[in-house]
């Protein structure tokens, strides 16, 4: 008998018979998700963007708001200058970013082990927790979000979802990517005496640039 059969047999031996039907189990599982508002925190502010910003700021994420994507390169130049960083950037190879006017900034798509700054797009934002959602893909390397010291993330306001369950609902039924990552604040650790230190292995600085909704180009 294989280990699989031994384990499943042992599990079944500890459970009552007859076993419930898959449909009954699915109905029970769905019922466990009913009325989620009674069991999750309320948003920090009435609007999704304000709630997202309040939660993000509490975690040490910095947030800037821009009227449109065209204003992004100028905002990035300002961020680099403010942090005394040289004008070089690992840029996510996304078409909507490539078409912008990045003059004055050296850009590359390969991410160095000690990359100072990288910029990428978030697929979704979650207002409840100030989280950014990133899905791996051909133009979304996962290491772009983990190797740099400064991680700049562009989030379109109309991609904000109120709660974690809303993200689960939006993606239910889709083929999941290799990695779906919720990023909530810069990398940190409390492993030495419980004292909080930023920049453990991932980015020590997380900067979100929120793009106002009406300015988003049609896909």
């Amino acid at each position: 008998m294989t280990a699989r059969d031994r384990i499943l047999n042992a599990v079944r031996a500890g459970l009552p018979t007859p076993r419930a039907t898959p449909d009954a189990i699915a109905a029970e599982a769905r019922a466990l998700l009913d009325a989620p508002e009674a069991r999750r925190p309320a948003l920090a502010a009435p609007g999704l963007a304000d709630s997202f910003c309040a939660k993000a700021a509490a975690l040490g994420t910095t947030v800037a708001r821009l009227p449109d994507l065209a204003a992004l390169p100028e905002a990035v130049r300002g961020y680099l200058a403010d942090h005394g960083l040289s004008a070089t950037l690992a840029l996510q190879p996304a078409p909507s970013l490539a078409v912008l006017d990045w003059s004055g900034i050296e850009r590359h798509s390969a991410i160095a082990p000690d990359e100072p700054v990288a910029l990428g797009l978030a697929r979704w934002g979650i207002a409840e927790s100030g989280s950014l959602v990133i899905h791996s893909g051909p133009d979304t390397p996962i290491l772009l979000s983990f190797l740099p010291l400064h991680h700049i993330v562009v989030l379109h306001e109309d991609r904000l979802l109120p709660h974690l369950e809303d993200y689960a609902a939006r993606t239910a039924g889709e083929a999941p990517p290799r990695n779906a990552i919720l990023i909530t604040g810069p990398s940190g650790t409390t492993d030495i005496e419980g004292s909080y230190v930023r920049g453990a292995h991932g980015p020590g600085f997380l900067h979100v640039i929120l793009i106002a909704p009406e300015a988003r180009p049609a896909d």
């Binding site: 975690l59 893909g137 999941p176 290799r178 990695n179 919720l182 990023i183 909530t184 990398s187």
Partner: peptide, 15 residues
Amino acid sequence: QYTTFHCGPKRPGDA
């Protein structure tokens, strides 16, 4: 800070 779902190996074309 990082809540990550890992689903299978790298997909064709993944970076």
